[in-house]
Design a protein around this nucleic acid. Structure first.
Lengths: 220, 220
DNA sequence: GGGAAATATGAAGAACTCGTGAAACCAACG
DNA sequence: CGTTGGTTTCACGAGTTCTTCATATTTCCC
């Protein structure tokens, strides 16, 4: 269950929003004072924050700025002011969305849902895949893979940034220290072999994906 | 010091406005003929433009449309006509503000100040649209879009400056690294496909808009 | 409203990409 | 010198994407 923090100085509005969020299946916490926001976030790690712009203690802008120094938790800004500049400033300090009062609580909940659905940028290697540079050894689901040197470097290059797409040329650069001239299709050949060995251990894995017209990436 | 261009066919009014702007600390230039406007802008890069709707040579609307194909400089439209439709049309082609004659010059200067004070940050992408260049992945409302390479580059080009209108030729330049010769209509085809995929996720979205006679833009 | 220009759409062939197996190549080793 | 395992290239087929063209539909301007 996702945890949502509401920083809002109007208690009635805050509890109204909290109720709606709870009804939508979220865990909602309210804070009325801007000064308490940052410590609470550090202690409780919410998955999303609804932040009022005008607050006693500290302004929402300040809070958002400081938030962004240590977290990329989604933030929805709420304000009474309706000027375009507000919107721009809000997004500039790192808010993910913006809403003007008076707003429909339904609308707010919809945006909360949208932001929480958004794929979180997590740069972790796929579960079960362990790569040991020193031993020059890779294991999937505990089983050691018998990879050739090129296959190992290929997999290592992909693991370095899981999810990111590498062009064939980009991969060739990483595969060979010298700048030998090699065909793009060579990458395909190694990918083929690498895939075969991965599938032996985890059938239907599809860990190495091809992005049509672009290159290859490691599936998260 | 900010540079302001005044495109206005009544010399007396033009110089009056120019005087006020200079008194307010701006650099002001006057042009009387609509045909000279675009070349002057390209050559002198003003920070703001005061544009009369009725001009000898070219209408202010035409000028504004073409302006928006290569610049997002703030534009204040000025007109003798007072109808609401004018205002709508003016804003549709990309003007930032609108003023009807007769107007107080003091009022105009105030609006110039307001627009120049406005933080010139890149406008944010439409809410819910996230584009990840590295992963070569686009998501709308949390759902990942399956785009072809050209569609991806097309959307990325539009997202780079949301709200700004891109001509088809301009888009083709951004779409292909090589300078292959492609018909303008090709852009239409890709826009069609892109729209279809966007609408699958958010029906009635209308995110990619066509500006008649100019090109395409991303709706904010 | 009517005509001209611009845009939207659907269909189809051309062009491109990718996966694959087979073959050529190469270096190391017995 | 032949074998072996690894690497690279090649060529083909299947599938996808790109581009164009012809045909609606919309928009603009008079």
């Amino acid at each position: 269950m996702s945890k949502v923090l509401i920083v809002e100085d109007e208690p009635k509005l805050a509890s109204l929003v909290a109720d709606y969020l709870k009804a939508a299946g979220y865990e909602a916490h309210c804070i009325e004072n801007g000064l308490e926001a940052i410590p609470w976030v550090k202690g409780n790690q919410p998955d999303l924050i609804v932040l009022d712009l005008m607050l006693p203690g500290r302004s929402g802008l300040e809070i958002c700025k400081e938030l962004r120094t240590f977290s990329d938790v989604p933030v929805i800004m709420v304000t009474a002011r309706v000027e375009e500049v507000d919107r721009l400033i809000g997004l500039e300090v790192g808010a993910d969305d913006y809403l003007c009062k008076p707003f429909s609580v339904r609308e707010l909940v919809a945006r909360v849902k949208a932001l929480l659905r958004r794929p979180r940028v997590a740069a972790a290697a796929p579960a079960g895949l362990a790569i040991d540079e020193e031993k020059h050894q890779v294991s999937l689901d505990g089983k050691v893979l018998d990879l050739t040197p090129v296959e190992f470097r290929l997999l290592a290059a992909l693991v370095a940034a899981p999810g990111r797409v590498f062009s064939r040329d980009g991969l060739l650069e990483k595969l060979y220290a010298d700048h030998r001239v090699v065909t793009d299709r060579t990458v395909d050949a190694h990918v083929k072999n690498l895939r075969r060995k991965l599938e032996e251990i985890r059938p239907g894995a599809d860990l190495v994906r091809s992005i049509y017209g672009v290159g290859y990436k490691l599936e998260l």
